[in-house]
Design a protein around this nucleic acid. Structure first.
Lengths: 222, 222
DNA sequence: TTTGGTATGCTACCATACAAGTTAGCAGCA
DNA sequence: TGCTGCTAACTTGTATGGTAGCATACCAAA
């Protein structure tokens, strides 16, 4: 299954993807200063493609460009996570409802395969990758892939928090079980049940938020 | 009421805003080729800020950058409009529900003022501006402004169609009436009624779509 | 007529140089 | 000691030149 955004051709695109990953995975910590010149030197390229990568990241709200001052990895705003959650819920519930109506046996098999894959995932990155693939698969089934692209972008804010919380708060088994409930409801062509299952699933991260903000205060703003 | 994205400082930002407006208002027609050099010459600036504006537009799906080939105003894909509609519905319905719960008298006055303003609008641009202000105001009341930012971006795809259809299909009076029903439901603190009103409102454009695609085939793809 | 190679002019992409603004730090003075 | 103001070292923003890739037109050969 190809990634939803696959065009790693130009240098600017490559820099963008790498920086995006590093920010989402919290390798580049919130609040950290990023200099065009520094990144350019690190990757042995000129400032120009780095600059263009920064522009993309800024539009995704992952960095903040302060003119003539510097570019900084955005701190995680609790309100942003809440709003990201709000938007994601709205879209994914709608997607799940349509998926429940359009579900085909062949598609369902793939989803269950992904869930099985999750259950045996050994690393957080591995789990989150198949997690994303699952949600994307559901969107594909509902024939709303470009709606999923919106979620994908929004999700970056939440994923930063999820990487912080790996193994600390949310047990994998529980998430896998929630996934199973979602797909079961879809397979049974029950839109309401699917919507409810999605809500239960996405609600989890919100409960973790206050604890995480307490534990990693320097990564949050406000 | 400030616009949701107000930072027209750098040349790149100014170029971006102007081009965005011209694309959304269909001054720059779908399929038209945009050259960095041409735009730079038109606005008497260098190619660099134009290029950065193109990058922003590409991320908003308003232009398509084909490396070493050219940059083109995206044709309107019917499926994109459908998906834009899908996402917008999902978010705006959720916003309306929360607005219905959090509505304050002072906020409601502003909304009714906007509706009155719409009823007397003489140009399409004027109407759409206050239309946007109304929906943004509802989002502000629901305390989900950043969710509205997502809608704002998505909406660009639909607005291009709306500008095509001015005066031809959708009578202003009808839209204003729909707005009134939405705000009435919110004022009455009835989430379900508000959601239903929003759905009725946003459904209109979908009915216009086939007719518009028939009338302006060169602006659509597929 | 059709096919294939080539020249030309276009494009976006990248590197480099310069400009303009901000900030931190330190020297010097009250 | 504490404040003021300058300087120097950053930052991003803009301009410009050169390069590689693609498309078209043209011409020659089959």
């Amino acid at each position: 299954m190809d990634d939803v955004l696959a065009k790693p051709v130009s240098i600017a695109n490559q820099i963008h993807q790498r920086l995006r990953d590093e920010i989402v995975h919290a390798v580049l910590k919130p609040g950290m200063a990023l200099s065009e010149a520094d990144i350019a030197a690190r990757y042995k390229v000129s400032r120009q493609p780095v600059r263009e990568a920064f522009i993309r990241l800024a539009q995704e709200d992952l960095v903040e460009i302060r003119p003539q001052r510097g570019t900084y990895v955005r701190r995680i705003a609790a309100v942003s996570v809440l709003d990201a959650h709000f938007v994601r819920d709205a879209i994914e519930v709608a997607i799940a409802r349509e998926a429940a109506q359009k579900a085909q046996p062949a598609d369902l098999e793939k989803l269950y395969a992904l869930i099985a894959c999750q259950a045996t995932a050994s690393t957080n990155a591995e789990f989150l990758a198949s997690d994303e693939a699952l949600h994307e698969g559901i969107a594909a089934m509902a024939e709303h892939l470009s709606a999923w692209r919106v979620v994908h972008q929004i999700k970056a804010q939440m994923d930063r928090v999820r990487y912080l919380s790996y193994g600390e708060v949310s047990p994998i088994d529980r998430l896998v079980q929630q996934h199973r409930e979602i797909v079961d409801a879809i397979a049974a062509h029950q839109p309401d049940a699917a919507a409810a299952a999605v809500l239960r699933h996405t609600a989890d991260i919100l409960h973790q938020l206050p604890e995480l903000a307490r534990r990693y205060p320097e990564m949050f703003e406000g």
